[in-house]
């Protein structure tokens, strides 16, 4: 049961939804599938005064852009994303990252835009039983932080858990937004504030209409891995997404993007590690050096019972495997699906 009342306004288009949000004011929230918003409302850590429902708007099917990339409607459900033939053939990495989110039911309900705009999570915050008997933490407007008691006021180290955002950043994807002041296009990597308290830096009433990916170069390879406790139906321990391009001889790496998710307030791109990899001939020693650089750079926050050193060990093991898989795919040794 949701213990407080709110208004509900269905929107017939995204511009209309944006206008409704502006009119309804600060307390209004957009809702796609509601799978991130409603659990928070049930434990009253978020109390919107009004919900603008997007579920009545039919998403466009994925299409190929003039540049040869893909355009995917933001309201596409994760189930549709994971099944769409255009996505599974052209961007298997994106389909894979949608397939590992939550459960069948969550994927049937949850949308791509909602996944990207999901709130950061923390074991103290997203729990049902004790919250109402505890003083509010910084994220809820209070004056303490439970897991990090020495944090200065206003610093919240809750973690951004999207499985899809790291894949999209590795693919160098952009979002397209709708807003009364005119929409814009920006890199997925640019939509995060890096602050646990308010992690998404879109404007109020700015909505994501589509995700656009660029065309993929020749000798392109990808690797993706989500670690989770049960191997299914769980938020991540850590997510690793890698894309890379090899030269014509397929011996040296000419471009790489390495993104680690679910370890900080936003997905972390490890630029140092990418620099180690790019321009070099691929061998075991290079993988080891790349992994070392990533581990030095990623600075994971302990979260959901996973210590910092556990997360670093996780990264050491899986980043190496993901890099190897990406190179195999770039060499055409593994099927791309």
């Amino acid at each position: 049961m949701i213990l407080f009342d709110f208004e509900y306004e269905p929107a017939r288009s995204l511009p209309e939804a944006s206008a409704l949000l502006s009119r309804l004011g600060e307390g209004a929230r957009a809702m796609g599938g509601g799978t991130d918003l409603l659990p928070k409302m049930r434990i009253a850590i978020t109390r919107p005064t009004a919900i603008v429902g997007l579920s009545g708007i039919e998403p466009e099917p994925p299409s190929v852009t003039a540049e040869g990339g893909l355009r995917i409607d933001g309201l596409t459900t994760l189930a549709a994303l994971a099944r769409a033939p255009l996505v599974t053939t052209n961007l298997p990495m994106l389909a894979e990252s949608a397939r590992v989110v939550g459960s069948d039911q969550v994927r049937e309900m949850g949308t791509l835009a909602g996944n990207l705009c999901q709130d950061t999570r923390c074991l103290e915050l997203n729990q049902k039983h004790d919250y109402q008997f505890k003083a509010k933490c910084f994220k809820r407007g209070g004056e303490c932080c439970y897991p990090f008691p020495n944090n200065r006021p206003g610093r919240c180290w809750s973690v951004y858990m999207s499985d899809i955002a790291p894949a999209l950043i590795a693919l160098n994807a952009e979002i397209e937004t709708v807003h009364a002041a005119g929409g814009r296009r920006l890199a997925v990597a640019e939509m995060f504030s890096g602050q646990g308290i308010d992690p998404i830096s879109l404007e109020p009433a700015e909505l994501i209409s589509a995700v656009i990916t660029p065309p993929l170069p020749a000798n392109f390879g990808w690797g993706y891995h989500k670690s989770s406790r049960r191997g299914g139906f769980e938020y991540a321990i850590a997510v690793i997404a890698v894309t890379l391009t090899l030269d014509a001889s397929r011996q040296a790496c000419t471009d790489a993007r390495i993104v680690i998710g679910a370890i900080r307030e936003k997905p972390v791109r490890v630029h140092e590690a990418e620099r180690v990899l790019v321009g070099q001939t691929i061998d075991d020693a290079l993988f080891a050096e790349t992994v070392n650089a990533a581990v030095g750079e990623a600075r994971p926050l302990r979260h959901h019972g996973f210590s910092r050193s556990y997360l670093i060990d996780n990264l050491r093991i899986y980043l190496r495997r993901v890099l190897i898989r990406a190179v195999e795919r770039a060499r055409g040794h593994a099927s791309t699906t």
């Binding site: 509601g34 409603l38 659990p39 009545g56 069948d104 049902k128 139906f233």
Partner: peptide
């Protein structure tokens, strides 16, 4: 659980399995 995390509330909405605890009746 009323949090989407157990599945006991699963119903078929226009043929799709969804979580009843996270589906507003107005929708």
């Amino acid at each position: 659980c009323e949090q989407g995390a157990c599945g006991v509330c699963t119903v078929l909405l226009d043929g799709r399995a969804v979580l009843g605890c996270l589906t507003l009746a107005v929708e």
